[in-house]
Nucleic acid binder design. Structure first.
Lengths: 278, 278
DNA sequence: TCCGACGATACCCGCCGGGTATCACAGCCC
DNA sequence: GGGCTGTGATACCCGGCGGGTATCGTCGGA
């Protein structure tokens, strides 16, 4: 199954084999055997390249979910039964650039709960909390709609905030009291920054952003402008100007967790979050 | 993994091995090897019986999810790539006793959609739609809160209805214009019927119900009474009386599907459902 | 005290998943 | 057009792991 996903992603047996740390012939055979077992053709091999069939597309999607689920089972079991498990531990995934106050308030409030589990905060980049939750590296996550999708998770709403445009302080538009999405989408010489949404960068002229520091620098240099949640004001520089966007979608912060999860510790964390924030 | 789940369910190596169609020693060894690989103790073996550890509990839950996910991957792939797949097929799970009108309306409306997939209706017993959806035997389901849990699925609301008490027509209470939950919960000599909720029967004096026919018979015989959604009037007998329950929770019918699912055919079905019913 | 039940251990075997060497074929360049 | 390159498929070999049977150790109960 891992083999199939690797080949489907690379669309190249040799590279996939290399990525898997094995030789190409066994991989070829394994895939063929998988096709035989399922009774389904997964790849169109027409010399010079490989393509997924319809069934292959389905298996790529479902197979990833299955791999995530098994990885999650392994990780959560190990966390539950490790030698270091006199008391339970929870891993909370948050966006590194997310609101610090919110997180601090949550952690403080939860620490005061009797019998609280130990919380490990897992800071991640732009939008991978969903993957962390799905494959068991995290037990809960702070997610932000509309940037994250809550599909497949249970969640509770915590806070709502507007969005601001961040642009160089010396730019003419910095003097405005407010802006619209249409206005910032089309500023001559100042393209909108792009960051990965669900794993891929949207098309556009702006620079591709990997982290918040890089974004801050690019804005200060007058190379780009960005639309970010209101709480991002916390990390702005003197060289930045923040202008409210009157028609941008509201950003809602949720706490999300895998849809089953009957863990007592997790339930306590969620209750604390909704009570102290929501 | 299948092995582990079997042992965890049986709590007995011999019976688990029998259920798996294998001998006991290899099973013992496989479990021990699993424990070694995970670095976690899953069972307390204290001669005469086996018990799950905390980590074992976690793995039982997560492992079932993982097994479901892989089964789903296999089934959906086979359905997508089978020899009989010139056009796509969707499997819709509905409770056998569910509203016929609703289903008929949905199927008729969807059949009229251009490029509609073929819909296979999977009638099931009381509450197993969730399992069918999770392990890929179904692509969508009509579910009824609060009887089904929508956790882990995407869903759209379709209809809302009240509930009625069904009791023998000759019973004194049959003359009443309405009843309350408290009243029907404690009728002397007429205990409330029980059916499986999330896989187990709730405790109580009433008979355990397996299907709608059995329930109808038991009510007609004056052995039990039941609380059911309003649409169940369709299958009542002359020997039954239906009395509105003024304070019972509303029953909401949803169409639900696995949280990802980018299938075009499924999207069409959902759109049809929300447009023609909701 | 002996027997029965149950899980663990010992040992054997066949097969499947891994490896290397090689082939078959399509494009490409000279 | 003839090698050359790069691709996936095939042939063949080997070791280990998953399955089996036989047996043991140990506790409960008659």
């Amino acid at each position: 199954m891992r083999y199939f996903v690797a080949v489907a992603e690379e669309l190249h047996f040799g590279r996939a084999a290399e990525r898997l740390g094995m030789a190409q012939p066994p991989l070829s055979r394994a895939i063929k055997q998988l096709e035989r077992r399922l009774g389904v053709v997964l790849f169109e091999r027409d010399r010079r390249g490989v393509a997924l069939t319809g069934a292959g597309e389905v298996l790529l999607y479902e197979g990833r979910a299955a791999l995530d689920a098994t990885a999650a089972a392994v990780r959560r079991t190990q966390r539950a039964g490790g030698v270091d498990a006199p008391r339970s531990r929870l891993v909370l995934a948050v966006k590194a650039a997310g609101s610090h106050e919110l997180l601090q308030k949550l952690l403080d409030a939860y620490a005061a709960v009797p019998g609280a589990a130990e919380i490990e905060v897992l800071l991640c980049g732009f939008c991978d909390q969903e993957g962390l939750l799905r494959d068991g590296r995290a037990d809960a996550a702070l997610m932000h709609t509309p940037f994250n999708s809550l599909a497949g998770f249970d969640s509770e709403e915590l806070t709502t905030e507007g969005q601001i445009a961040v642009l160089p302080a010396r730019h003419p538009l910095a003097a405005r009291a407010s802006l619209t999405v249409a206005e910032v989408a089309d500023v001559p010489g100042l393209p909108l920054a792009r960051w990965p949404s669900y794993g891929v960068y949207p098309p556009g002229p702006g620079p591709e952003i990997r982290d918040q520091t890089q974004l801050a620098q690019l804005i200060a240099l007058g190379r780009t402008l960005a639309v970010v949640p209101d709480s991002a004001r916390a990390w702005l520089w003197a060289e930045h100007a923040a202008i409210p966007l009157i028609d941008a979608p509201q950003v809602v912060t949720h706490i999300a967790w895998p849809a089953h999860s009957r863990s007592l510790a997790l339930a306590g964390l969620i209750r604390t979050a909704t009570e102290c924030i929501g």
